[in-house]
Deep mutational scan, measured.
Amino acid sequence: DWEDIVRFLRKLFELGEEVVIGDWHNHHREEIKRLIEWLEKHF
């Protein structure tokens, strides 16, 4: 279910905002944000 995936990604992203998950999070933050925005537009 796409909504569950979007919710999971958003939760992960919000957690990442508070607890910076090292370089991985910083590197992928923009991609995650773009992916969430893309999914919201399409689903």
Rank of each mutant, 00 (worst) to 15 (best):
R29Q: 09
E14Q: 12
L9V: 02
K11Y: 14
G16P: 04
R29M: 08
I36R: 02
N26V: 05
H25M: 14
V19R: 03
D23E: 05
L12W: 05
G22N: 07
W38Y: 05
H25P: 13
H28T: 08
R34L: 13
H28V: 15
W2H: 01
D23H: 05
G22K: 07
H25T: 05
V6I: 13
W2S: 01
N26D: 14
F8V: 03
K33Q: 10
V19M: 10
E14V: 05
E3W: 14
H25K: 05
G22C: 14
G16K: 07
L35S: 02
W2R: 01
H28W: 15
E37A: 08
K33F: 12
H42N: 06
D1S: 11
E31N: 09
H27K: 10
R29F: 12
D23V: 05
L35W: 05
E14I: 06
I5T: 01
H28R: 09
L15A: 04
F8M: 08
E30N: 06
E40P: 01
F13W: 12
G16T: 11
W38C: 12
H25S: 03
H42C: 12
E37S: 11
R10T: 07
E14M: 13
G16N: 05
E14Y: 06
E31W: 15
I21T: 10
I32P: 00
E30D: 09
I36Y: 06
D23A: 07
F43V: 06
W38I: 05
K33D: 04
F43Q: 03
W2C: 14
V6T: 03
W24N: 08
W38M: 04
F8N: 02
H42Q: 06
H27W: 13
K41H: 11
I32T: 02
E18P: 07
V19S: 09
H42S: 09
H27E: 06
H25Y: 15
E31V: 12
F43G: 02
L39N: 00
N26C: 14
W24Q: 09
F13P: 00
R34G: 03
F43T: 04
R10M: 11
D4R: 12
E17F: 15
D23Q: 06
H28I: 15
G16W: 15
E31L: 15
W2K: 01
I32D: 00
L12I: 08
H42M: 13
I36F: 14
K11C: 13
H27D: 09
W2N: 01
V6A: 06
H28F: 15
R34N: 04
K41V: 09
R34Y: 10
F8T: 02
L12A: 02
L39A: 04
E40M: 14
W24Y: 07
F8A: 04
R10E: 02
F13H: 01
L39W: 07
N26A: 12
R10D: 01
R34K: 11
N26H: 13
H27P: 07
G16R: 04
R29W: 15
G22I: 09
I36E: 01
K41I: 07
E37T: 09
F8W: 12
R7D: 03
G16C: 14
G16D: 04
L39C: 08
L15C: 12
G22M: 06
R34I: 09
H28Y: 14
V20E: 05
L9N: 00
E18L: 14
W2Q: 01
K33T: 07
I36H: 02
E3L: 11
E14H: 07
L35G: 01
E3K: 08
H42I: 13
K33Y: 10
E14F: 07
I36Q: 02
F43L: 10
L35F: 14
H42L: 15
